[in-house]
């Protein structure tokens, strides 16, 4: 076997990106994933992790508006990009309609997969303000939840979508 660290530590790079609208400047090593940068360097622990191999969807965040798995994105690859995490969803003290609906309808049980679902769902509603169940099933097929069986999550997204469309 080779040394488990493979090579000696290369120098740090200064990463400039926006996280939840805030400019960030952070010196990081290239092998640090966005997940690690968010949780360990920026202490944004709202982004969770369930496998770090891209097999569960728990660590999903939005990079330039697109849902991706932060465990498989390098921090340095986010140079100049804009990242949104669950901490950035609320508008000041006002929860995002998805957050409100998830809380209201019991879509978060243990809450561990919830940030990943919220961000994936947010991008879905950005694209499709009135998604059918089939659309939701396809869009959320990369996020695993062990508590809810997904049903309350669909209901919450439907409620949030209706409210965002102005349906009472």
């Amino acid at each position: 076997m080779s040394d488990h660290r493979v090579i000696p530590e290369p120098p740090k790079t200064v990463l400039h990106m926006k996280v939840n609208g805030v400019r960030i400047e952070e010196a990081i090593r290239p092998h640090k994933t966005l997940l690690e940068v968010l949780r360990e360097d920026l202490l944004l622990t709202g982004t969770k992790h369930g496998c770090e191999l891209g097999e569960c969807g728990t660590c999903a965040v939005l990079v330039d508006g697109e849902p991706v798995l932060s465990c498989l994105v390098l921090g340095v690859a986010c140079q100049g990009k804009s990242v949104e995490t669950v901490e950035g969803m609320a508008n000041g003290p006002e929860l995002h309609p998805l957050q409100e609906a998830f809380a209201e309808l019991g879509a978060a049980q243990c809450g561990y997969c919830t940030p990943g679902f919220l961000l994936t769902a947010k991008e879905l509603l950005d694209r499709d303000p009135d998604p059918s169940r089939e659309t939701m099933i396809a869009a959320l097929a990369g996020n695993l939840c062990r508590c809810t069986g997904y049903l309350k999550i669909y209901e919450a997204i439907e409620l949030a979508a209706a409210r965002m469309r102005g349906v009472k």
């Binding site: 090579i7 290369p10 092998h31 992790h49 770090e52």
Partner: peptide, 10 residues
Amino acid sequence: MLRLPNFHYH
């Protein structure tokens, strides 16, 4: 947490 080993990035 499962982490990447070090590498040079280009």
